[in-house]
């Protein structure tokens, strides 16, 4: 199944984003960002199903949570 990793700055923002998405009925999981996102090192990502990624990104951005990058993940 294809997923999108939405890479965020820290675990605080990852949990904040996950809680927000939950309110909108979007399920997500949290994990470390898979690679050196933007060359800054450790960060956290939330993983959402491909079909929910556009809505998830929109919700996260509307709530002023900084997204470092988005990338496709194969599970």
């Amino acid at each position: 199944m294809k997923k999108q990793a939405i890479n965020l700055t820290s675990v605080t923002y990852a949990i904040k984003a996950q809680n927000l998405l939950k309110k909108y009925g979007i399920w997500s999981s949290i994990g470390k960002s898979g690679k050196n996102v933007k060359g800054v090192g450790c960060g956290y990502s939330i993983f959402v199903k491909d079909e929910h990624s556009a809505a998830a990104i929109n919700i996260i951005q509307q709530n002023k949570i900084r997204i470092l990058s988005v990338e496709a993940k194969e599970e």
Partner: peptide, 17 residues
């Protein structure tokens, strides 16, 4: 150490880190 942005020498500007 904050667990975030580990490869940069500057303290991260994000709160609460």
């Amino acid at each position: 150490g904050t667990g975030s942005m580990s490869l940069i020498s500057e303290q991260p500007g994000i709160m609460p880190d």
